[in-house]
Amino acid sequence: MKVIAVIPARYEASRFPGKLMQMLGDKTVIATTYQNVMDTALFDDVFVATDSQIIFEEIKKSGGKAVMTGAHETGSDRIAEAVQDLDCDIVVNVQGDEPFLKLEPLQQLIAVFNDDPEREISLASLKIKLTEPDDIENPNHVKVITDRNGFALYFSRSVIPYARETVVKTNYFKHIGVYAFRKKALLEFAALPVEPLETAEKIECLRYLEYGMKIKMIETDFVGVGIDVPADLEKARRLIDRNK
């Protein structure tokens, strides 16, 4: 099974333009993400897919691999263009704004496909338990609910589930934007029209669910910092400083 990692990266992020070129220690966010993925030594190939000449040059300058794509609304669409002619079985999408991802969660995602003899799983992704009310209510934190077998039922920026009955303990999970796809499922995704739920929530995973694809969610205790807004960048810098 040939497994590659692709880091989709665009410069003009809606909530924090240029965030991938901000500095984390002595490297930019995107260069830090790329290096951390390379350091896992899990993949047959790793590269950045971008429509930004600035990001392309940054990765090439740091000795990494990058390819230019057209403009896309989602990372999955961008990756689909980048891998359509490549020989690979599993494509792991590591978000460019998740610079601290570690070895174990990536191993867990890849293992999903080794344990899927019927090939019913289209993609796998990560979730982490949320406990702080501010995190649960934050629309920048995409929440996910699953069935008893760990397959995603829905993703939302709203609080799900809604705890109408407060006597029962309710667990909340944040979706971490790292995916592992079967290449075939990824290319099928990119060919499908965008449906209303994805448009409303701005969550690309909903396109898979709206077309009946299965998403296996893996719970992790990995705590990183996804950089969505400037305050997240400051958290990431403090984490870098603590680990020096």
Score class of each variant (00 low, 15 high):
2 K>R: 15
2 K>V: 12
12 E>S: 10
13 A>W: 13
13 A>Y: 15
14 S>K: 14
15 R>K: 14
15 R>D: 12
15 R>S: 15
16 F>Q: 05
17 P>K: 02
19 K>R: 14
19 K>T: 08
20 L>D: 08
22 Q>D: 11
24 L>V: 05
24 L>T: 03
25 G>A: 04
25 G>S: 09
26 D>K: 06
27 K>Q: 13
29 V>S: 01
31 A>S: 12
31 A>R: 15
34 Y>T: 00
36 N>L: 00
36 N>Y: 01
37 V>E: 01
37 V>R: 00
38 M>F: 04
38 M>K: 13
40 T>S: 10
42 L>R: 02
43 F>K: 01
47 F>W: 12
47 F>Y: 08
48 V>P: 04
51 D>V: 11
51 D>W: 08
51 D>P: 04
53 Q>K: 09
55 I>E: 07
60 K>N: 08
61 K>A: 08
61 K>T: 01
61 K>D: 03
62 S>T: 04
62 S>M: 11
63 G>P: 05
64 G>M: 07
65 K>D: 11
66 A>E: 03
69 T>K: 07
70 G>L: 11
74 T>R: 06
75 G>S: 07
76 S>I: 05
76 S>H: 11
77 D>Q: 13
84 Q>H: 01
86 L>C: 00
87 D>A: 06
89 D>C: 04
90 I>T: 02
92 V>D: 01
95 Q>N: 15
98 E>T: 13
102 K>I: 11
105 P>S: 02
106 L>P: 05
106 L>G: 07
106 L>W: 14
108 Q>D: 10
108 Q>I: 00
108 Q>W: 03
114 N>C: 07
114 N>E: 09
116 D>P: 00
116 D>N: 02
117 P>W: 00
118 E>H: 13
119 R>W: 04
120 E>D: 14
123 L>N: 07
123 L>E: 08
124 A>Y: 03
125 S>F: 06
126 L>R: 03
130 L>N: 01
135 D>Q: 10
136 I>M: 01
138 N>R: 10
138 N>W: 02
138 N>P: 01
143 K>M: 12
145 I>R: 04
146 T>C: 14
147 D>W: 02
149 N>W: 11
151 F>E: 07
152 A>H: 06
152 A>G: 02
153 L>T: 12
154 Y>E: 15
155 F>Y: 15
156 S>N: 13
156 S>R: 07
156 S>T: 08
159 V>N: 01
160 I>P: 13
161 P>K: 14
161 P>M: 04
162 Y>K: 13
164 R>C: 10
166 T>D: 07
167 V>D: 15
169 K>Q: 09
174 K>A: 15
176 I>K: 14
178 V>E: 03
180 A>E: 09
184 K>D: 15
187 L>E: 04
187 L>P: 00
188 E>H: 12
193 P>D: 06
196 P>A: 15
200 A>N: 10
201 E>S: 09
202 K>N: 09
204 E>K: 09
207 R>I: 05
213 M>V: 00
213 M>K: 13
214 K>V: 03
215 I>W: 02
215 I>Y: 03
218 I>H: 13
220 T>P: 00
221 D>L: 10
223 V>M: 12
224 G>D: 04
227 I>W: 09
229 V>F: 09
232 D>S: 08
233 L>Y: 04
234 E>M: 05
236 A>M: 03
236 A>V: 06
237 R>F: 08
238 R>H: 12
239 L>P: 00
243 N>M: 10
244 K>R: 15
244 K>Y: 15
